[in-house]
Design a protein around this nucleic acid. Sequence first.
DNA 1: ATGGGTGTTGCAGTATGTGCAACACAGGAG
DNA 2: CTCCTGTGTTGCACATACTGCAACACCCAT
Lengths: 249, 249
Amino acid sequence: MSQTVDRALSILPLLAQGPADLGQVAERLGVHKSTALRLLRTLHEHGLVYRQQDQRYRLGARLFALAQEAVENLDIREIAHPHLVALNEEIGHTVHLAVYEEGEVLYIDKVESRYPVRMYSRIGKPVAITVAAVAKLLLADLPEPERRALAAKLDYPPYTPRSTPDAAAFLKELATVREQGWATDLGGHEESINCVGAPVRGADGRVAAAMSVSAPNVVVTAEELLTLLPLVRRTADAISRDYSGKDRT
Amino acid sequence: MSQTVDRALSILPLLAQGPADLGQVAERLGVHKSTALRLLRTLHEHGLVYRQQDQRYRLGARLFALAQEAVENLDIREIAHPHLVALNEEIGHTVHLAVYEEGEVLYIDKVESRYPVRMYSRIGKPVAITVAAVAKLLLADLPEPERRALAAKLDYPPYTPRSTPDAAAFLKELATVREQGWATDLGGHEESINCVGAPVRGADGRVAAAMSVSAPNVVVTAEELLTLLPLVRRTADAISRDYSGKDRT
DNA sequence: ATGGGTGTTGCAGTATGTGCAACACAGGAG
DNA sequence: CTCCTGTGTTGCACATACTGCAACACCCAT
């Protein structure tokens, strides 16, 4: 829509792959060096780009700061956090909160061990969308056509023998999840890790986020983990109530 | 330098504070709504901005992806990582790697517990620059005038009674660090946490990064932690050798 | 129905970004 | 030491592409 901005922003993913010098940037953008220079300068002023000693450019620190701030200000996250902590204190296992956004599933909070330590361990990383319990919950609620379209264009990496093999199996799984209102990942991503998850719903009844509890099966067998399901669902419902209660001003 | 891009980028920090609608964005930018709309659209196309159901804009997922990729591609980080893991395996405590960039200190890697789990727990967050061992190491190596200027404009929050109180004390501490070639943070940030750190130097001898080992003093007393210093320095030196050896193509 | 509040579109004018060409500066080769 | 090639940088004239306007579309509340 805006050519200048479009060009400037195209520089970011380009630099994400690794540092580049002015010439390279100009070439890959298909513009004159002087143009690239001015764009880079502007990005630099905003801290999105950094110039290292060898004069090459790479992504700058502000980017991290922005990403961080953005996560912290997600209202669902803010509302959910105390609930996650409470659940974690009760059962001790790792608790995740995730949202769906334009074809991706993102972890936006995580509580682990006994401390309320926030490790945004996987933020930005492609979540194992075809197997993670939270992903199933989020995708199961998409409108039919969108869900089909997405399922069709996904890859189905065989992380383990139990991973979802293809679109057909995935859609079937999603139907189940949709119906039962909760989801699991039993060794679908990593052989020894099981998860149980439940959806958080907004005022409109649609799934706004999903939470899950994960534990390695050396600590808890899958069956034992499933006994926690009522607790997980209760927590998710509590978050839903909080979330749909107050309107987000 | 480039007005259009400048305006577009100004939207990001604005949205980082929380979602905003078109009117608010336009007003805070001081431009017409239609202008703001086009800028937001462009940002949206690049995934930097996301539009929620209520039509308000907030920062988008791509931002996280970019930040993540950027961190993973930092060459120092890549080189240092195996060393950090090795050190961690030997001593068991948390190991951090940090760099300095335009007035800020950033953690770019962390190894904790026995697993090589990467938790970018603090990336983007303002590091406690006045007390952290890694910050001292990085700032101690700045050219004199820059160091003074920076020290003068910093805040000196009294996290604990042992925190660096003011610029004078900080500069003195930096001088010590510079001379001895290592640094500590003994309860300066959190009462019960101690750190020991050492610098990583590039081919030009300047400090390119800094690493530290942290442990709560319920586990290890400050004195015991200091006995690890030789090991820490050896690791830092090993990284320095690796780093200055190969030129970064 | 009616009104105020949004977000959206097409358009004309010109501010703004563009590419060029010349310059500055470095490092390497001879 | 000098030349030379490869960088990054600057000033400028041109016209592209961005801007603000005003009119429209839409939704919700009154």
